[in-house]
Every structure is written in structure tokens, then in C-alpha cells.
Design a protein around this nucleic acid. Structure first.
Lengths: 351, 351
DNA sequence: TAGCTTCGCCGAACCGGTTCGATGAAGCAC
DNA sequence: GTGCTTCATCGAACCGGTTCGGCGAAGCTA
């Protein structure tokens, strides 16, 4: 069922069918109706490949996402879903491109073979060769996250510095003096992941400002690592009374570690951080946290990309979001726990 | 940089370049080298659209996934990731297609506009018009899940009936007599979601077999609903000592409800179900559950689809998996809790 | 050296759309 | 009735690959 078939049945030329369907030139009303009728009868739809070949646009975005090796977090899933849905609203499809191992090959597929009109990048690093590469090619793309030098780029992102600082201030306001920071895995920090770095910076600076005593940790993206990390925290400084985490996946393990160490949240120990809202509500007590607006970020990324495609010469735009901390149940005033008990409660303590 | 440019620079015809690159006809070795050199110098890659138009294959799969309206579970994310990675290994890209609202439109995009060579469907219903539709068209596709009449179809899936039954037997073996079942939301059950129906069936039949007293509940896909559901369970029958759940997203809420009701897991109350392994390990105590092998299912689905595309006349194949229950820490022998306490512990009980 | 095969390459057609310039008919003024 | 514009439609070229038939040169046989 190609356009020639429709043309023959409607008794017109192929170009007339094309114009009737696209509306790019006027077509007599009764001709248009006749064509439309044939189209409806046969259920004709123009081939995406042929259309893409002819007009050079694929109506497809690439979504470059991290490989499964790093465990996915709820946040990432929400990104994917919201990007796909927002793109559909603008009549774009989304092609998934695993970055990571052999990322060159999948980049080549997307760009070299011209499969997509634009790309959205997840999991940005401070120095990100993918971003640089795309910028050098002037290829339309939007990053979810910002590099060390975001000027002149198109991106949406969270102000991780401010969010981590907000967590610190919240805890300091509650009277906490000894606070731990649980970051993403060391491997990701070393690789330069933006959230890990900016979060750490924001935490460190705000803590210094408030005169807090802090320790910072990297922690694997799973519950077992979270538990181990918490044991380490209490071992290193048993008088720690609060922690800030960026690590969604470790959260369950952190809670478990606290329970094992006999620390009640929030009475003896406060927990907060930057976590997707839905996730924050699954733990008990529910986590007081800066909720990552993943769905909004995905939507904004798509909007920027669409704008960039529609107006190739538009000046770069970006959105930096700073969601407020949602007060839930995992933080409370410090000092409820007597210092004596704090000294006892090492990593080997039992309830 | 099209194939004509390469041909000119290498001093050969376009067809020779094509044959040199595809290897579908022999080309003199030095000619081939000359062409390859030009290709490498210019970084030439053939246009995916043109290739797709010419040979009728897009090298792309569609992945039809549920809309974000239903909250995503960890399982679904793992599916997506593993499908994308497995597809990449076979040199296929993956195009995301939100099913759900206006699913016809996105189906039309995939099939009508011939964007994909085949499709993988998630979230299957017992009576699934998408599956029927694809089968009627003889369009290459593989379902993750099976309908009420899976004969003659291509699919991979879990034996939810057996898994739910295994949970029941596990609890019955531990001496539990009054057991609740926490299903996916009623809306999904009514829509005919496979896992919800088969899980419920397996639970009900196995419970009857073992002579257990049971109640079954539907529960929203979020923590708050889980907590409410648990309160309801204990209100309806305070002497309930165990539950089986298919609802990953509600799990955190169920645990919270138990804690609020003063029921210690696993001493006073056992919890088990069918949940992705990583998720089961985030809760405390870790959940004894039949681990959903999401990554393996995704990989198998891709393998079947590739086979179906390579051998269009191959007889239908499928994989039905029945992962064993992983014993963790959330189930224990019944009867540890005195009946008197059980009677006291209504939904309003406080620790 | 004529005749036949094999090898390596070329030209043209094709996939299914879009787009531009041209053409013919109708409508209108004079 | 001629000249001019407007309108609707058509034909052809083009996008960038793939594929088929054919053709000339080289190699081999007799």
C-alpha cells in the first residue's frame, strides 16, 4: 500500500496525494475527500523510512541512557517514561541508546546513520566527552544534567549543590553537629558524575559554613552496600547523629543498618537526602528529602529539544530546578540520644 | 557524505561501494581496500533511512510498554534495560512505544509507518487485543507474559500460578493458617492483567488445597495504599499471620503497616510474594520471595524475536520460567504470637 | 587464435515518499 | 474573442541506498 496505489485508486497523481495529505499546497476539496476516502479504506500510512529519506527528518529522538551494569534507580526509570511520553505529545518517537560499554558504536548508529533528529543525554559527567562531541558537531541535543562548563549548552538539571546544602542546613537547624554524607559509588564519583560531585561540594561547603563535623562516604548502588556503609559510619564515629544521601538504591540498606545498630529514626538518628519522591515514601519512616522531579525534568528536556529543532538558530536555553525539601518523618532534633548511649552504640551493638 | 561521494573519490561506481561494504558480491581486494580507506577517512556511514527504504528492514524493534500513569516498578525498568542491551547485541535498536492512552496511535506509528521489524509487548492481559491484532497481521512479535490462550504464540513469561502457589505452600509448611493475598490494583485486575489473575488463581487454589483461610485484596501501586491495605487486612481478620503479595510498589507500605500494628516480621507475621530480587533486598527484613528474573526474560524475548525474524516460518516458541523462592528473612513459623495478642492487635494498635 | 568461462565492475531500476516547475483549464476584464 | 491571472493538478527529479542484468577483459582450453 504505497502512495502510488492510493493515487491510482483515487485517479490522481502521486504528488497530489502527497499534497492532499500534508496540506502543503491547496487541493480541491472534492479531490481531497476522494483521496482521504481511499486512504481510510485501505488504512494507508506513509512509510517512515521513505519520508525520512525524502525530507531528512526522522521524527525520532535518541535517548542515551546508562547501561544496566550500574543498577537503575527509580529516578532513571521516571526519566525514561516521561521523556517517551512527552516526545509522543510532539509526535516524536524515542530510540533507546545504551551508553557505556562500546558507547561509540551506539553513538555512531544514532548520528552516523542519521537515525535520530536529536538526542537527550542522561547521567552527565562534569567532563563529558559525549556532550563535547555533540556540541562540536552542533548536533541538536539536550543534556539532563550539566557539565562543569554548561555555558552555551542546552540542558535541564537539578541544582545538586543547593539541594545538598539545603539538607545540611535542615540538619544543622535541628541541632545536628556530626553528619555523614553517603554518595554514589566511588567508581561513579571518579568518573566525574555530576550529581555525585556537585552534591559532595554542596554538602562539604554548607557543612563548613555551619561548622559541622562531617565524614563522607561512597556507597554501592544496592541495599547490601548501604548497610555496610552505615556500619562503617557508626564505626568511624559512633556519635554521628545524621546522614545525607544521594544514593536512592542504598537507602533501604542504610535504614536496615540503623535498625541493626539500635538507632531509631528519627529519635536517635536523622536521615535525609536527594531522592525521587515515590521512593522516599516507600521507606519507614518516610524520608524527608529533596524530591527529584524526574518526570518534570524529562518533560522539560523534550520541550527544549523540540524548540531547538524548530528554531535551529535559537540561543541556548536551560532549566535549573531546585525542588524544596519535603518534610516527612525521618529527621528530628538532635540530642535526644544521650552521649553515653551514643558511645556504646558501635557497629556491633544489638537492639 | 553519501555513497556517491565515496564512489567518486574511490574511482568506482556506487554499486561497487555497496558490494564492497556489504560483501554480498566479491570485490577485488585492492579495490575493496581503496574504498575502505575513503570510507575511513570521511567517516562515512550509510543512512539508516535509505537502507531501510531499499531493503525493507529497519533493524529496529518496538518495545510496547505501559504508560507512566501506572507507576513503574523495578521489574519493568529491568525489562527495558535488558531488552535494549540484548537487542544491541544483535544489532537492533529499540523504539519505545507507550501503550495505554491512545495506544492505537502509537501502534499505527510502529506498524503502519513500518518503523520497526518486530515488537516486544510488556504487561500482557489475559485477553489482549494488541496480541490478537499482531497475530492477525502475522506481525513478528514476542509477548512478555502470556494471554489466556497462548497456544501458537511467541512469548516468554513467568508461571505466576505456580509462583503464587509456591508462596502458599511455603507459608502452609511453616504452619500459617490464615493468610492474606495482596494483589495489584483492582483496575488492573479488572483490565485482565495476566500476573494479577494467574497469581490470584494460583494463590486461591493452593490455599484451598492446603485448607487455609484466606482473604484477597487489591492494592494501589504505592506505599500509602500498601499501608492502608495492611490495616484493612488486620481489621478484617486480626488473626491473620501471613501475606503473599505481587505488588512490589506497595511492599514498603505493607511493612510500615505491620510495624505500626506492632507485628514483628517474621516473628509475628510472615511476608512473601513475587518480587524482583533487588527490590526484595531493600526492605528490612529482606523479603523471602520468588525473584522475578526480569533481565533474563528481556533477553529471552529478544532472542525469540530475532529467531522469528531470521526464520519467518519457524514454529512458535516460548519460555515459561518458574524461579524458585529465595529464602530470606521475612517468613517464619506461625504460632509464635499468642492468640490473645493477635486479638488485641487491631488496626489502631500502637507499638 | 577462436570459443568459452570466470572475474570484476558498471549502469539502471527500484524502494516510497517530497518538492519544484510546468501545464492546462477556468474565470475575468476589456 | 484575446490576453491575463488564478487554481488545481501533473510529471519529473531527488533523497541514498540495494540489487539485478550485462558487459568487457582476462584466463583457460582446444
Amino acid at each position: 500500500m504505497n502512495i502510488g496505489e492510493i493515487a491510482r485508486r483515487a485517479g490522481v497523481s502521486r504528488s497530489t496525494v502527497s499534497y492532499a495529505l500534508s496540506g502543503k499546497r491547496p487541493v480541491a476539496e472534492d479531490t481531497r475527500r476522494r483521496i482521504q476516502q481511499v486512504v481510510d479504506e485501505l488504512g494507508y500510512r506513509p512509510s517512515a523510512s521513505a519520508r525520512a529519506l525524502a525530507n531528512g527528518r526522522t521524527s525520532t529522538f535518541g535517548l542515551v541512557f546508562p547501561p544496566a551494569g550500574n543498577h537503575y534507580t527509580g529516578m532513571q526509570l521516571d526519566f525514561i517514561g516521561s521523556v517517551v511520553e512527552a516526545a509522543a505529545a510532539y509526535d516524536y518517537d524515542v530510540l533507546m541508546s545504551p551508553s557505556g560499554v562500546d558507547s561509540d558504536r551506539s553513538f555512531q548508529r544514532l548520528l552516523g546513520e542519521r537515525r535520530v533528529d536529536g538526542a537527550i543525554l542522561m547521567e552527565i559527567r562534569l567532563e563529558d566527552d559525549r556532550v563535547d562531541h555533540l556540541a562540536a558537531l552542533d548536533f541538536p541535543s539536550v543534556a539532563i544534567g550539566r557539565t562543569a562548563h554548561p555555558e552555551g549548552g542546552w540542558w535541564v538539571g537539578l541544582d545538586h549543590t543547593a539541594l545538598a546544602a539545603a539538607c545540611v542546613h535542615h540538619l544543622a537547624d535541628l541541632g545536628h553537629r556530626r553528619v555523614a554524607f553517603v554518595n554514589r559509588p566511588e567508581q561513579l564519583l571518579r568518573a566525574g558524575y555530576e550529581s555525585a560531585h556537585r552534591g559532595l561540594d554542596g554538602f562539604t561547603k554548607a557543612a563548613a559554613e555551619r561548622g559541622l563535623t562531617v565524614r563522607t562516604y561512597c556507597c554501592g548502588d544496592d541495599a547490601a552496600s548501604g548497610q555496610a556503609c552505615l556500619e562503617r559510619i557508626l564505626y568511624d564515629d559512633p556519635s554521628t547523629t545524621a546522614l545525607v544521601t544521594l544514593n536512592e538504591a542504598a537507602l533501604g540498606g542504610l535504614y536496615r543498618g540503623l535498625a541493626k545498630a539500635g538507632r531509631h529514626v528519627p529519635r536517635d538518628f536523622s536521615v535525609t537526602g536527594v531522592v525521587a519522591g515515590r521512593w522516599a515514601e516507600t521507606v519507614t519512616p518516610q524520608l524527608t528529602a529533596a524530591d527529584v522531579p524526574a518526570a518534570e525534568l524529562g518533560r522539560l528536556a523534550v520541550e527544549l529539544l523540540v524548540e531547538r529543532l524548530d528554531h535551529p538558530d535559537a540561543p541556548p536555553r536551560h532549566h535549573l530546578l531546585t525542588p524544596p525539601i519535603s518534610l516527612r518523618a525521618s529527621t528530628g532534633p538532635a540530642g535526644a540520644m544521650p552521649a553515653a548511649l551514643a558511645a556504646d552504640a558501635g557497629p556491633d551493638a544489638t537492639p
